[in-house]
Design a binder for these strands. Sequence first.
DNA 1: TATTGTTATACTCTATAACTATA
DNA 2: TATAGTTATAGAGTATAACAATA
Lengths: 148, 148
Amino acid sequence: MSEHDALSTEVMDALVQASFTVMAALSQVAAAHEMSLTQLRVLAILRDHEPKIAELAAHLGQDRSSVSGLVDRSVRRGLIRRTRSTEDARAVQVTLTAQGQSLAAEITAQIADLVVPLIQRLNATEQKRLSALLGRLLDEQIGQVAAG
Amino acid sequence: MSEHDALSTEVMDALVQASFTVMAALSQVAAAHEMSLTQLRVLAILRDHEPKIAELAAHLGQDRSSVSGLVDRSVRRGLIRRTRSTEDARAVQVTLTAQGQSLAAEITAQIADLVVPLIQRLNATEQKRLSALLGRLLDEQIGQVAAG
DNA sequence: TATTGTTATACTCTATAACTATA
DNA sequence: TATAGTTATAGAGTATAACAATA
Protein backbone atom coordinates (compact mmCIF):
# COMPACT_ATOMS: atom_id res chain seq x y z
CA MET A 1 0.00 0.00 0.00
CA SER A 2 2.11 2.87 -1.31
CA GLU A 3 1.68 6.63 -1.47
CA HIS A 4 1.15 8.51 -4.72
CA ASP A 5 1.60 12.15 -5.66
CA ALA A 6 -1.29 14.60 -5.78
CA LEU A 7 -1.27 15.06 -9.56
CA SER A 8 -1.48 11.33 -10.29
CA THR A 9 -4.30 11.05 -7.78
CA GLU A 10 -6.16 13.88 -9.47
CA VAL A 11 -5.80 12.23 -12.89
CA MET A 12 -6.92 8.91 -11.42
CA ASP A 13 -10.06 10.48 -9.99
CA ALA A 14 -10.88 12.05 -13.35
CA LEU A 15 -10.27 8.74 -15.09
CA VAL A 16 -12.45 6.79 -12.66
CA GLN A 17 -15.23 9.34 -12.89
CA ALA A 18 -15.08 9.32 -16.70
CA SER A 19 -15.20 5.53 -16.65
CA PHE A 20 -18.34 5.50 -14.52
CA THR A 21 -19.96 7.97 -16.92
CA VAL A 22 -19.09 5.83 -19.93
CA MET A 23 -20.23 2.65 -18.17
CA ALA A 24 -23.48 4.35 -17.20
CA ALA A 25 -24.06 5.09 -20.89
CA LEU A 26 -23.33 1.49 -21.89
CA SER A 27 -25.54 0.14 -19.11
CA GLN A 28 -28.34 2.47 -20.10
CA VAL A 29 -28.29 1.26 -23.69
CA ALA A 30 -28.06 -2.36 -22.52
CA ALA A 31 -31.00 -1.87 -20.15
CA ALA A 32 -33.07 -0.29 -22.94
CA HIS A 33 -32.77 -3.66 -24.70
CA GLU A 34 -33.22 -5.64 -21.48
CA MET A 35 -29.65 -6.88 -21.63
CA SER A 36 -26.78 -6.89 -19.18
CA LEU A 37 -23.46 -5.18 -19.82
CA THR A 38 -21.95 -8.63 -20.32
CA GLN A 39 -24.53 -9.60 -22.96
CA LEU A 40 -23.72 -6.32 -24.70
CA ARG A 41 -20.00 -7.14 -24.61
CA VAL A 42 -20.70 -10.56 -26.13
CA LEU A 43 -22.58 -8.95 -29.01
CA ALA A 44 -19.72 -6.50 -29.55
CA ILE A 45 -17.11 -9.28 -29.56
CA LEU A 46 -19.15 -11.36 -31.99
CA ARG A 47 -19.22 -8.53 -34.53
CA ASP A 48 -15.56 -9.25 -35.31
CA HIS A 49 -14.98 -12.82 -34.09
CA GLU A 50 -16.41 -16.35 -34.08
CA PRO A 51 -14.97 -17.51 -30.77
CA LYS A 52 -15.31 -20.87 -29.10
CA ILE A 53 -16.88 -20.89 -25.65
CA ALA A 54 -13.48 -21.13 -23.97
CA GLU A 55 -12.13 -18.19 -26.00
CA LEU A 56 -15.16 -16.09 -25.19
CA ALA A 57 -14.77 -16.97 -21.51
CA ALA A 58 -11.10 -15.96 -21.56
CA HIS A 59 -11.97 -12.67 -23.27
CA LEU A 60 -14.66 -11.87 -20.70
CA GLY A 61 -12.58 -13.12 -17.78
CA GLN A 62 -15.29 -15.56 -16.74
CA ASP A 63 -15.68 -19.28 -16.19
CA ARG A 64 -16.70 -21.44 -19.15
CA SER A 65 -19.84 -22.55 -17.29
CA SER A 66 -20.92 -18.93 -16.80
CA VAL A 67 -20.46 -18.23 -20.50
CA SER A 68 -22.39 -21.37 -21.39
CA GLY A 69 -25.41 -19.98 -19.54
CA LEU A 70 -24.84 -16.51 -21.01
CA VAL A 71 -24.86 -18.00 -24.50
CA ASP A 72 -27.98 -20.02 -23.67
CA ARG A 73 -29.95 -16.91 -22.88
CA SER A 74 -28.89 -15.05 -26.03
CA VAL A 75 -29.59 -18.11 -28.17
CA ARG A 76 -33.08 -18.27 -26.64
CA ARG A 77 -33.58 -14.66 -27.79
CA GLY A 78 -32.46 -15.48 -31.32
CA LEU A 79 -29.40 -13.21 -31.21
CA ILE A 80 -26.63 -15.78 -31.53
CA ARG A 81 -26.21 -19.43 -32.49
CA ARG A 82 -23.97 -22.36 -31.57
CA THR A 83 -22.16 -24.22 -34.35
CA ARG A 84 -20.26 -27.46 -33.76
CA SER A 85 -16.64 -27.03 -34.82
CA THR A 86 -15.60 -29.20 -37.78
CA GLU A 87 -11.99 -29.43 -36.56
CA ASP A 88 -12.70 -30.38 -32.95
CA ALA A 89 -15.93 -32.23 -32.22
CA ARG A 90 -15.83 -31.07 -28.59
CA ALA A 91 -15.77 -27.38 -29.43
CA VAL A 92 -18.59 -24.95 -30.20
CA GLN A 93 -18.31 -21.85 -32.36
CA VAL A 94 -20.50 -18.88 -31.37
CA THR A 95 -21.79 -16.53 -34.09
CA LEU A 96 -24.32 -13.72 -34.50
CA THR A 97 -27.65 -14.38 -36.22
CA ALA A 98 -28.97 -11.77 -38.67
CA GLN A 99 -31.12 -10.45 -35.84
CA GLY A 100 -28.07 -10.29 -33.57
CA GLN A 101 -26.07 -8.38 -36.20
CA SER A 102 -28.87 -5.91 -36.61
CA LEU A 103 -29.19 -5.39 -32.85
CA ALA A 104 -25.42 -5.01 -32.43
CA ALA A 105 -25.38 -2.27 -35.05
CA GLU A 106 -28.30 -0.49 -33.41
CA ILE A 107 -26.65 -0.66 -29.99
CA THR A 108 -23.37 0.69 -31.33
CA ALA A 109 -25.18 3.66 -32.83
CA GLN A 110 -27.10 4.34 -29.62
CA ILE A 111 -23.90 4.32 -27.58
CA ALA A 112 -22.35 6.77 -30.02
CA ASP A 113 -25.41 9.00 -29.75
CA LEU A 114 -24.81 9.24 -26.00
CA VAL A 115 -21.03 9.54 -25.92
CA VAL A 116 -20.20 11.61 -29.01
CA PRO A 117 -22.02 14.73 -27.72
CA LEU A 118 -19.69 14.68 -24.71
CA ILE A 119 -16.66 14.36 -26.95
CA GLN A 120 -17.78 17.22 -29.12
CA ARG A 121 -17.39 19.61 -26.24
CA LEU A 122 -13.75 19.47 -27.33
CA ASN A 123 -12.48 20.91 -30.61
CA ALA A 124 -10.65 18.73 -33.14
CA THR A 125 -7.19 19.48 -31.76
CA GLU A 126 -8.26 18.63 -28.22
CA GLN A 127 -9.96 15.45 -29.39
CA LYS A 128 -6.76 14.29 -31.09
CA ARG A 129 -4.82 15.11 -27.95
CA LEU A 130 -7.22 13.17 -25.71
CA SER A 131 -7.20 10.18 -28.01
CA ALA A 132 -3.39 10.16 -28.07
CA LEU A 133 -3.09 10.49 -24.29
CA LEU A 134 -5.56 7.68 -23.64
CA GLY A 135 -3.76 5.57 -26.21
CA ARG A 136 -0.48 6.03 -24.32
CA LEU A 137 -2.19 4.95 -21.10
CA LEU A 138 -3.43 1.72 -22.62
CA ASP A 139 -0.32 0.43 -24.35
CA GLU A 140 -0.03 -2.52 -22.01
CA GLN A 141 -2.29 -4.35 -19.66
CA ILE A 142 -2.82 -3.72 -16.00
CA GLY A 143 -1.12 -5.64 -13.18
CA GLN A 144 -2.45 -7.88 -10.45
CA VAL A 145 -3.38 -7.02 -6.89
CA ALA A 146 -3.00 -9.34 -3.91
CA ALA A 147 -5.92 -10.13 -1.62
CA GLY A 148 -5.96 -8.26 1.69
CA MET B 1 -29.53 6.48 -35.05
CA SER B 2 -27.27 9.21 -36.48
CA GLU B 3 -23.87 9.25 -38.14
CA HIS B 4 -20.77 10.63 -36.43
CA ASP B 5 -17.41 11.78 -37.79
CA ALA B 6 -14.33 9.56 -37.74
CA LEU B 7 -12.42 11.57 -35.15
CA SER B 8 -15.24 11.50 -32.61
CA THR B 9 -15.60 7.78 -33.16
CA GLU B 10 -11.89 7.27 -32.59
CA VAL B 11 -12.02 9.23 -29.33
CA MET B 12 -15.09 7.29 -28.25
CA ASP B 13 -13.31 3.99 -28.84
CA ALA B 14 -10.33 5.15 -26.78
CA LEU B 15 -12.65 6.32 -24.02
CA VAL B 16 -14.60 3.07 -23.93
CA GLN B 17 -11.43 1.02 -23.93
CA ALA B 18 -9.94 3.11 -21.12
CA SER B 19 -13.16 2.70 -19.16
CA PHE B 20 -13.05 -1.08 -19.46
CA THR B 21 -9.44 -1.04 -18.26
CA VAL B 22 -10.32 1.09 -15.24
CA MET B 23 -13.39 -1.03 -14.45
CA ALA B 24 -11.28 -4.19 -14.73
CA ALA B 25 -8.93 -2.73 -12.11
CA LEU B 26 -11.82 -1.86 -9.79
CA SER B 27 -13.40 -5.29 -10.28
CA GLN B 28 -10.10 -7.00 -9.63
CA VAL B 29 -9.64 -5.20 -6.31
CA ALA B 30 -13.27 -5.89 -5.38
CA ALA B 31 -12.88 -9.58 -6.23
CA ALA B 32 -9.70 -9.79 -4.15
CA HIS B 33 -11.92 -8.90 -1.18
CA GLU B 34 -14.79 -11.09 -2.40
CA MET B 35 -16.95 -8.05 -3.05
CA SER B 36 -18.95 -6.86 -6.05
CA LEU B 37 -18.31 -3.55 -7.79
CA THR B 38 -21.51 -2.28 -6.21
CA GLN B 39 -20.38 -3.21 -2.70
CA LEU B 40 -17.14 -1.37 -3.43
CA ARG B 41 -19.11 1.69 -4.55
CA VAL B 42 -21.13 1.60 -1.35
CA LEU B 43 -17.96 1.61 0.73
CA ALA B 44 -16.60 4.53 -1.30
CA ILE B 45 -19.81 6.53 -0.88
CA LEU B 46 -19.90 5.87 2.86
CA ARG B 47 -16.42 7.32 3.31
CA ASP B 48 -17.91 10.80 2.81
CA HIS B 49 -21.63 10.38 3.54
CA GLU B 50 -24.13 8.84 5.97
CA PRO B 51 -26.97 8.29 3.53
CA LYS B 52 -30.40 6.87 4.17
CA ILE B 53 -31.33 3.74 2.22
CA ALA B 54 -33.36 5.76 -0.27
CA GLU B 55 -30.50 8.21 -0.84
CA LEU B 56 -28.05 5.39 -1.35
CA ALA B 57 -30.45 3.75 -3.79
CA ALA B 58 -30.79 6.99 -5.75
CA HIS B 59 -27.02 7.41 -5.87
CA LEU B 60 -26.52 3.85 -7.14
CA GLY B 61 -29.49 4.01 -9.50
CA GLN B 62 -31.09 0.97 -7.91
CA ASP B 63 -34.32 0.04 -6.20
CA ARG B 64 -34.56 0.48 -2.41
CA SER B 65 -35.21 -3.23 -1.97
CA SER B 66 -32.00 -4.08 -3.82
CA VAL B 67 -30.02 -1.73 -1.61
CA SER B 68 -31.66 -3.18 1.48
CA GLY B 69 -30.23 -6.60 0.59
CA LEU B 70 -26.90 -5.07 -0.39
CA VAL B 71 -26.70 -3.42 3.03
CA ASP B 72 -27.72 -6.67 4.72
CA ARG B 73 -24.76 -8.51 3.28
CA SER B 74 -22.23 -5.85 4.24
CA VAL B 75 -23.71 -5.59 7.73
CA ARG B 76 -23.32 -9.37 8.07
CA ARG B 77 -19.63 -8.91 7.23
CA GLY B 78 -19.22 -6.20 9.85
CA LEU B 79 -18.36 -3.47 7.35
CA ILE B 80 -21.33 -1.15 7.83
CA ARG B 81 -24.14 -0.60 10.30
CA ARG B 82 -27.74 0.60 10.26
CA THR B 83 -28.74 3.42 12.60
CA ARG B 84 -32.36 4.46 13.12
CA SER B 85 -32.75 8.13 12.28
CA THR B 86 -33.68 10.34 15.22
CA GLU B 87 -35.61 12.77 13.02
CA ASP B 88 -37.70 10.23 11.12
CA ALA B 89 -38.47 6.94 12.85
CA ARG B 90 -39.04 5.27 9.48
CA ALA B 91 -35.61 6.09 8.10
CA VAL B 92 -32.30 4.28 8.49
CA GLN B 93 -28.87 5.88 8.33
CA VAL B 94 -26.07 3.76 6.90
CA THR B 95 -22.51 4.24 8.22
CA LEU B 96 -19.12 2.52 8.07
CA THR B 97 -17.85 0.52 11.04
CA ALA B 98 -14.18 0.86 12.04
CA GLN B 99 -13.54 -2.32 10.06
CA GLY B 100 -15.36 -0.86 7.07
CA GLN B 101 -13.32 2.34 7.24
CA SER B 102 -10.13 0.38 7.35
CA LEU B 103 -11.15 -1.79 4.39
CA ALA B 104 -12.26 1.25 2.38
CA ALA B 105 -8.85 2.85 2.87
CA GLU B 106 -7.07 -0.35 1.89
CA ILE B 107 -9.18 -0.70 -1.25
CA THR B 108 -8.56 2.89 -2.28
CA ALA B 109 -4.82 2.35 -1.97
CA GLN B 110 -4.96 -0.89 -3.96
CA ILE B 111 -6.86 0.79 -6.77
CA ALA B 112 -4.28 3.57 -6.85
CA ASP B 113 -1.49 0.98 -6.98
CA LEU B 114 -3.04 -0.42 -10.16
CA VAL B 115 -4.04 2.79 -11.90
CA VAL B 116 -1.27 5.24 -11.01
CA PRO B 117 1.44 3.26 -12.86
CA LEU B 118 -0.59 3.69 -16.04
CA ILE B 119 -0.93 7.41 -15.43
CA GLN B 120 2.78 7.78 -14.83
CA ARG B 121 3.50 6.81 -18.40
CA LEU B 122 2.64 10.47 -18.99
CA ASN B 123 4.80 13.35 -17.80
CA ALA B 124 3.41 16.06 -15.52
CA THR B 125 2.37 18.35 -18.37
CA GLU B 126 0.55 15.56 -20.14
CA GLN B 127 -1.14 14.48 -16.92
CA LYS B 128 -2.48 17.99 -16.36
CA ARG B 129 -3.69 18.08 -19.94
CA LEU B 130 -5.48 14.74 -19.61
CA SER B 131 -7.10 15.74 -16.35
CA ALA B 132 -8.31 19.00 -17.86
CA LEU B 133 -9.69 17.33 -20.99
CA LEU B 134 -11.56 14.68 -19.00
CA GLY B 135 -12.88 17.41 -16.73
CA ARG B 136 -14.34 19.24 -19.74
CA LEU B 137 -16.02 16.03 -20.88
CA LEU B 138 -17.75 15.50 -17.57
CA ASP B 139 -19.16 18.94 -16.90
CA GLU B 140 -22.74 17.76 -17.23
CA GLN B 141 -24.56 14.49 -17.13
CA ILE B 142 -25.33 12.19 -19.99
CA GLY B 143 -28.65 12.01 -21.86
CA GLN B 144 -31.28 9.31 -22.21
CA VAL B 145 -31.67 6.75 -24.96
CA ALA B 146 -35.00 5.35 -26.15
CA ALA B 147 -35.67 1.61 -26.21
CA GLY B 148 -35.40 -0.06 -29.63
C1' DT C 1 -4.96 -38.31 -19.28
C1' DA C 2 -6.32 -33.70 -20.65
C1' DT C 3 -9.64 -30.61 -22.70
C1' DT C 4 -14.42 -28.77 -24.25
C1' DG C 5 -18.63 -27.85 -23.04
C1' DT C 6 -22.70 -28.72 -20.12
C1' DT C 7 -25.27 -29.49 -15.90
C1' DA C 8 -26.21 -29.26 -10.86
C1' DT C 9 -25.86 -26.39 -7.08
C1' DA C 10 -25.39 -22.30 -4.42
C1' DC C 11 -24.99 -17.49 -3.66
C1' DT C 12 -25.14 -12.58 -5.13
C1' DC C 13 -27.57 -8.98 -7.54
C1' DT C 14 -31.56 -6.85 -9.21
C1' DA C 15 -36.54 -5.67 -9.87
C1' DT C 16 -41.64 -5.93 -8.80
C1' DA C 17 -45.21 -6.45 -5.60
C1' DA C 18 -46.99 -6.64 -1.09
C1' DC C 19 -46.37 -5.51 3.56
C1' DT C 20 -45.30 -2.63 8.28
C1' DA C 21 -44.52 1.23 10.56
C1' DT C 22 -44.40 6.01 10.56
C1' DA C 23 -45.45 10.60 8.74
C1' DT D 1 -52.70 9.00 1.98
C1' DA D 2 -47.86 9.00 1.21
C1' DT D 3 -43.21 7.62 2.36
C1' DA D 4 -39.19 4.54 4.34
C1' DG D 5 -37.71 0.29 4.67
C1' DT D 6 -38.25 -4.76 4.53
C1' DT D 7 -39.67 -9.23 2.83
C1' DA D 8 -41.20 -12.64 -0.67
C1' DT D 9 -40.46 -14.04 -5.06
C1' DA D 10 -38.34 -14.63 -9.47
C1' DG D 11 -34.82 -14.35 -12.93
C1' DA D 12 -30.01 -13.17 -14.41
C1' DG D 13 -25.17 -13.60 -13.46
C1' DT D 14 -21.33 -15.88 -11.49
C1' DA D 15 -18.30 -19.70 -9.52
C1' DT D 16 -17.17 -24.56 -8.09
C1' DA D 17 -17.61 -29.35 -8.74
C1' DA D 18 -18.92 -33.27 -11.31
C1' DC D 19 -19.89 -35.16 -15.66
C1' DA D 20 -19.97 -36.94 -20.87
C1' DA D 21 -17.74 -36.67 -25.15
C1' DT D 22 -13.68 -36.12 -27.61
C1' DA D 23 -8.70 -35.46 -28.18
